[in-house]
Simulated scan of single mutants.
Amino acid sequence: MEAYLYKPEGGGLMITPKRDKIPRISKVELFYVDDSRGTNFSFMEKLRARAYAVNPV
């Protein structure tokens, strides 16, 4: 990943992320089947889940 404000200045800013030792799920969001957000769900409804992972394999 390279980052700079307007144009490359020399080599730019080099960013090297460090990996976490243990993969884990940081956040899970639930949606209705039509991808609209909801807060109260019934156990009879079909849902979609979106999971955000840290250090996925």
Rank of each mutant, 00 (worst) to 15 (best):
A53M: 14
G38M: 02
R37D: 11
M1I: 08
Y6Q: 13
P8W: 00
I15A: 09
K27W: 09
F31I: 02
G10W: 09
V54Q: 05
R19S: 11
Y52R: 07
V57P: 08
L13H: 09
N40L: 13
L13F: 10
L30M: 13
D34W: 07
D35V: 05
A51D: 02
R19N: 04
P17V: 02
D35M: 13
A51I: 03
E45M: 05
T16I: 10
E2R: 14
E9I: 09
M44N: 14
G10T: 06
S42A: 15
N55D: 15
M44D: 15
E29P: 00
D34H: 14
P23K: 00
G10A: 10
V54T: 14
D20E: 12
V28Q: 08
A49S: 09
Y52C: 03
E9A: 12
K46F: 05
G10L: 11
R37L: 12
K46Q: 07
L47G: 02
P56Y: 01
A51Y: 01
G11T: 02
K7A: 15
G38P: 00
G12I: 06
F41E: 06
F41G: 07
F31C: 01
P23S: 01
S42R: 15
K46L: 04
G38A: 11
K18Y: 10
R48M: 12
L13K: 13
A53R: 08
P56F: 00
E29N: 05
